[in-house]
Design a protein around this nucleic acid. Structure first.
Lengths: 194, 194
DNA sequence: TAGTATTGACTAACTATTCAGTCAATATAT
DNA sequence: ATATATTGACTGAATAGTTAGTCAATACTA
């Protein structure tokens, strides 16, 4: 282990993996691709990870925790928090830098049916997002800001809408993002706001 | 070309590809895997297709047309047609046979960002589904069965909900299908039905 | 016969993974 | 304090297996 920080080599591996995924996408990603973005040797990857699969599982863990941290949206009134969260998860435009990694995360998600560790990770993300929204709704209902809906079910529906919109944005040409965002916000206005 | 039907070899290749995808999934699919499900030789695949990529593109075309044909749901009143369509696209349970191919289609969809031909196909599916729903809504509005909503926007939202639900079902453990279905139908009841 | 369909044997490139060994830093023993 | 042993981090080169794709020869069909 290095001296600078607690896990600098592993951090460097994660960053190299990130870059490699950016450039090549998941399905054609090779260990060599990762090594090419890594300033140390390819063998070292096997010193730290027993296989490509475990390396990628660790990367997924690492990256999804970052994604989860995006769910944190301050302490304002529930309606504002919900709006912020939706705006962040279904933004008007995805900035060019984060585009490739979002696509890689979609590719990894599509592997989840075949790979248990991936599925566990995505299940967790799903649960955390749903619970986050549920809490916001619950708080809004208590404060009389939202109508008295079933917070859990409503959160589930919102999560599905969010993911559906995200998937379509990345996998189709000319997806009408603005129309979908509007409908998302309209749904909140009509179903939730008092 | 064979004598039996117009394209029996190509049909056999499509079926072999289907089986191979069932067994191996997309990301680890090899030409050999397809050949193993094919009663003729691997070389023959290259006689009919210039590359693995074009073979899979053709397979996607073939399979998505089948998927699109599922959108056809009879001639009853719009409210019934919509309900049937939703029930078909977000069924209570996915039958074991079609499970693997649905997953393969999700994997292929995740390749769409990198592969133009795939993206075009999925864009088309998306468009057809949206337009199908839009027509149903339009007809329902005209007949006074549905409220006077913006059919196009409402169709867009429904499509995102449908896809979101499908993605989550296949990529997470313990996805609450029933709750999501209920919310989908509740949304229709509240937003659309007069 | 002439074209079409099909094959098996082949290859060149690439794949993940292994392994023997280097090296600097640290711990231990005297 | 000095010599010795032991470690963890790291490397270059090799390996065994897999991959998509080719091609000359052959069977089939019209």
């Amino acid at each position: 282990m290095n001296l600078d920080n607690p896990e600098p080599t592993k951090v460097a591996i994660m960053e190299a993996t990130y870059e490699a995924l950016n450039k090549h996408g998941y399905s054609s990603l090779t260990i060599q691709d990762i090594a090419d973005e890594f300033d140390r040797s390819k063998s070292l990857l096997y010193y730290h990870y027993e296989s490509k699969e475990t390396l990628l599982a660790d990367f997924l863990e690492y990256t999804l925790q970052e994604f989860i941290s995006e769910f944190e949206v301050g302490e304002e009134e529930p309606s504002i928090r919900l709006e912020r969260l939706l705006d962040r998860l279904v933004p008007e435009s995805v900035d060019t830098d984060s585009y490739p990694i979002q696509i890689a995360l979609l590719e990894l998600r599509a592997q989840a049916p075949h790979t248990e560790v991936y599925r566990e990770r995505y299940s967790e993300v799903d649960t955390v997002l749903t619970e986050t929204i549920e809490e916001i709704l619950q708080q809004g209902i208590e404060r009389g800001e939202f109508q008295d809906v079933d917070a859990e079910s409503e959160a589930q529906l919102l999560v599905s809408m969010i993911y559906g919109t995200r998937v379509r944005r990345f996998t189709t040409d000319e997806f009408p993002v603005e129309q979908n965002r509007e409908m998302l916000f309209t749904h909140v206005d009509r179903q939730l706001l008092v």
